[in-house]
Design a protein around this nucleic acid. Structure first.
Length: 921
RNA sequence: GGGCCUGUAGCUCAGUUGGCUAGAGCACACGACUGAUAAUCGUGAGGUCGGUGGUUCGAGCCCACCCAGGCCCA
């Protein structure tokens, strides 16, 4: 007789292989058909809200692995909050304006770009952005991210654009918005400002000059060694044409400077550059004094050819890389010069027009093109005796990407949001301290940035964005940024989109009878600058959280990559504090960047880019999600074939544990078959104790957003506690006992409980697989695991005394395993059931084993286990006990495969043991 | 060059306020089973805790410097 059919072997339709790349899209389709997200929203109606506000990715190109990481992390947070009893809506968004899209559209247009109007250009940009919104939306959804995908927020929506303009109006209203000057990359040939992305660097030959700036008054008071002598500070520059705009000379506050006597006059340069300087001017000199630059702070020099002063200032940006350690400073022509100028209150002076020519009123050089003026400046320097040396040098220099001509740095009129006005900086810093930064160092990072940043330049000279809704008087040029008018324009944008700015006449935006406050005329022109896109996304708290009635501010969490300390976290903070006086978020979680297997950043040229699409195709989204959960996201996250292979193996282990349990509980009905806790055997209670520990750990790690802890905990639980111990031991009981017997139902009760817990705690991570397991489980339950809740903690199920006893038993089992392995190597046994073990144990361990004597064979999965006082030679000395292994006596029961000396107690079943006989009768 | 951060077995991670021979899972090797079977079980090997100095009775943990890497600036 074949007794196999009398056993309760596992049976399930749940496949061993996930086949995720095919299975997942089926689930997605079902979720969509059933309206799963809407159901989670409905389920949350009466629950407290947890709002994670989505930072908008840029609507350009396909998603990359960093996007996938970010969205999956958000999804894990949101799903865990929902299962924790919160209403957690998720409105995804996209950042749709800005230069990269505009440039791409221009590129696609080719030569036609000059033929189309701004309005047409904007239409193309709009279409371009919407195309990629659709693409990215599909790619995000494929990852299993649940949200309001059919109603996302887009910064190009009319309502959103209107709110952008409205928020700008608020800044105009409170005085935070002002117009000022700032140097930008400027192409004189194209007559336009260039963004960083439009600048190319190439070699260029420039004249380099060493120029003397004589002291206005004898510096002998602070450097007595040179009292009474003619003295100068020497600067070096490769842009002589910027000398007419010179207002200062910068020295490094911590460097040593020397006064060198050359041909009877004193020249001051940095000590570290003295030798190279003397060589460059072909002279010899004698050091008369050495001193710190601080001695000269605020001393006045004379401009070499204009009748004005140039002040000595201290700046950390001064280096010893080249030159003299004294830096010619023209705040209108350089970034560092500008910042120093701002700090020190210098004028942001720019004497150059749109075409790169000096204004007519500039003495000596009026009307000259700056690059042509170089030689005239040098001539002038020679004439006044200020030139020490000049030479041509070739160096890397910025060029216009369009016309390929060298560009200049030139201060132009720009719109700013003041960090000073309304105490924006101080308030923002104070608000930073009210936010929970995860990890903690996020606070230091953003604090340092806000503390030091200059005013926020919000204007851009481009087409694809929301206009700065200001006007200029056509007669006198007076700028008019009137809050009332701006609010009115914002309302018009909400209705008609900001395109109308490019369509309508200025008068149509202005109340009848508007006159210039300065000259009284009534003709106006529109400002044609647009807003920085960081302003667009920065006001999302208003355009999304405040705007949608089911959301609100402040958000509970913003969750983005660590680069957003300077990006979205930053702009959102300033926009919200500047108009609402408070931070838009309660907590900010940042994650690192995805790097390759050896910790290098991904780049196309290196060829180490991992695309989410490829991972999903090869392994499935759940494996990618498991990767997100397994990595400690506070650091950079590594990804490689090996890592993914490891992960998919871990996935298989978790999946198989679920499948095995499903197979064993296919005849189990929790409504009728659950065995009460107090009636469970000890090992079953041990399993529930372990499960309780797992729950504690996992629920805590969800609360702390430390998902990698959870991954390791679940993985370890499936492997160590379940597969290798409890489930292995349980096999005999569930396979060989009578189907409806209490001992079998006990085991099933535990397995069912374990699986019910596992599937819930895994659902936020393995969203697809958990759903499949959920559907395959017996019992009444919600239609989707994503509508279920986390299991409640049940501290009453914990039994520390029991756990302690079993900790010892596990150790003893380890000794037995080792002994069995030796016997196996010696060919005494094959399967552990071939063995009989004799154990000698002392003290407490001995007492414990004695109490459990009847269960030991089952626990060790051997046919016979006995306790003994003496063991012969060759016994294995373990850490806890001594073990002797022999071939089990008797014969192998055909049914349970245990060896028994009592085979065939029933005449109709001659080949099976008494226990099995009872089970089959 | 500056700000913030990271560096523990091949991989992913633990390692409480400094205190046993630095742990786990996976991978690997060997073995067993063939009633979880493209599974499962057992055993084993594998680490100068990035490096160098220092503080200490004692350092993976604290300090300094260096190296490698990441993000953001310049």
């Amino acid at each position: 007789m074949d007794y196999k059919d009398t056993l309760n072997l596992p049976e399930t339709a749940f496949p061993m292989k996930g086949n995720l790349p095919q299975r997942e899209p089926e689930l997605l389709k079902r979720w969509e058909d059933e309206g799963l997200y809407a159901k989670t929203e409905a389920a949350g109606a009466d629950r407290p809200r947890y709002l994670l506000h989505d930072g908008p990715p840029y609507a350009n190109g396909h998603i990359h692995i960093g996007h996938a990481l970010n969205k999956i992390l958000k999804d894990i947070v949101l799903k865990s909050k929902r299962m924790n009893g919160f209403h957690a809506p998720y409105v995804p968004g996209w950042d749709c304006h800005g230069l990269p899209i505009e440039l791409q559209v221009e590129k696609n247009l080719g030569s036609k770009k000059h033929e189309i109007s701004k309005l047409e250009m904007r239409k193309l940009c709009r279409e371009y952005a919407q195309k990629f919104v659709a693409i990215q939306r599909a790619e995000f959804e494929r990852l299993g991210v649940l949200g309001e995908w059919d109603n996302p927020y887009l910064t190009l929506h009319s309502s959103y654009e209107g709110i952008i303009a409205e928020e700008l109006a608020r800044f105009a209203e409170n005085g935070g918005l002002y117009k000022g000057k700032k140097p930008v990359h400027w192409c004189s040939s194209c007559g336009t400002a260039l963004a960083e992305a439009e600048v190319e660097y190439a070699d260029h030959v420039s004249p380099s000059v060493f120029v003397k700036f004589a002291f206005k008054e004898d510096p002998g008071a602070v450097i007595p060694e040179i009292a009474g002598k003619k003295a100068s500070v020497v600067i070096w520059t490769t842009t002589p044409w910027t000398l007419p705009a010179n207002l200062a000379v910068a020295l490094h506050p911590e460097l040593d400077y020397v006064a060198v006597e050359v041909n009877g006059e004193i020249l001051i340069v940095a000590e570290g550059l003295k030798d190279s300087f003397l060589k460059a001017i072909g002279a010899e000199g004698e050091v008369k004094a050495t001193f710190k630059a601080t001695k000269l702070e605020r001393k006045l020099l004379r401009h070499p050819f204009y009748d004005r002063d140039s002040v000595i200032l201290l700046g950390e940006h001064v280096t010893l890389d080249a030159g003299t350690g004294a830096v010619h400073t023209a705040p209108g022509h350089g970034q560092e010069d500008y910042e120093l100028g701002l700090r020190e209150g210098l004028e942001i002076y720019n004497p150059v027009d749109n075409r790169g020519r000096f204004f007519e009123n500039i003495e000596f050089f009026g009307g000259q093109f700056v690059f042509d003026a170089n030689k005239n400046v040098i001539e002038k320097l020679t004439e006044v005796g200020a030139l020490l040396a000049s030479a041509n040098i070739s160096h890397s220099y910025p060029h216009c990407w369009r016309c390929k001509k060298p560009i200049i740095f030139r201060a132009t009129e720009q719109w700013f949001i003041s960090m000073q006005k309304n105490d924006l900086r101080d308030k923002a810093l104070a608000e930073i301290n009210n936010v929970n930064w995860i990890p903690k160092w996020g606070r230091e990072r953003i604090y340092g940035m806000i503390e030091n940043r200059p005013d926020w330049c919000v204007s851009r000279q481009r087409s694809w964005g929301v206009p700065i809704t200001a006007f200029y008087c056509s007669s006198c040029g007076e700028v008019m940024a009137d809050a009332k008018v701006m609010h009115h324009v914002a309302d018009l944008f909400k209705e008609h989109s900001s395109d109308i700015w490019y369509d309508w006449e200025a008068a149509k935006f202005l109340p009848a009878g508007t006159t210039c406050p300065k000259c009284g005329k009534s003709e106006f022109e529109k400002e044609m600058d647009i807003l920085d896109v960081w302003f667009d996304s920065g006001v999302s708290f208003a355009a999304v959280c405040e705007h949608r009635p089911y959301l609100g501010t402040p958000a509970d969490m913003y969750l983005e990559g660590s680069d957003q300390h300077r990006g979205w976290f930053h702009s959102s903070l300033l926009a919200s504090v500047g108009t609402r006086g408070k931070a838009p978020y309660k907590s900010v979680l940042t994650h690192g960047f995805v790097v390759d297997g050896s910790g290098r950043k991904m780049s196309k040229s290196v060829g180490n880019v991992v695309a989410p699409e490829d991972v999903v195709k090869k392994f499935g989204a759940d494996v990618l999600r498991l990767w997100v959960a397994a990595q400690d996201y506070r650091d950079d996250l590594r990804i490689s074939q090996e890592i993914l292979t490891r992960l998919s193996e871990a996935y298989r282990r978790i999946r198989n544990t679920c499948r095995y349990i499903l197979g064993n509980i296919n005849d189990f009905n929790p409504a009728t078959d659950l065995v009460p806790y107090v009636e469970l055997p000890e090992i079953d209670r041990w399993a529930l104790h372990q499960l309780e520990l797992l729950k504690e750990k996992v629920l805590a790690s969800y609360d702390e957003c430390e998902f990698h802890i959870l991954y390791h905990a679940v993985n370890g639980f499936c492997t160590v506690e379940m597969s290798a111990f409890y489930l292995d031991i349980l096999k005999d009981r569930v396979y060989t006992s009578k189907k409806g017997s209490k001992s079998r139902r006990s085991g099933q009760t535990v397995m069912y409980t374990v699986l019910d817990t596992l599937v819930r705690i895994l659902a936020p991570v393995l969203s697809f697989t958990a759903e499949d397991v959920w559907k395959a489980m017996p019992g009444e339950r919600e239609e989707s695991v994503h509508l279920g809740l986390f299991p409640k903690l049940q501290p009453e199920v914990k039994d520390e005394a029991l756990a302690k006893r079993w900790e010892k038993i596990v150790k003893v089992r380890g000794d037995v395993s080792k002994a069995l392995e030796l016997a196996r190597a010696a060919k005494v046994i094959g399967h552990s059931l071939d063995a009989a073990v004799a154990i000698k144990a002392e003290g407490e361990t001995g007492e414990l084993l004695k109490e459990m004597a009847n269960e030991l064979a089952g626990i060790f999965i051997v046919s016979k286990a006995e306790l003994t006082g003496t063991l012969g030679d060759g016994a294995y000395q373990g850490e806890e006990v001594e073990v002797a292994v022999t071939a089990a006596p008797g014969e192998k029961c055909e049914r349970c495969w245990c060896y028994s000396e009592e085979l065939g107690t029933a005449s109709d079943h001659p080949t099976i043991c008494p226990k099995c006989t009872e089970a089959v009768q």
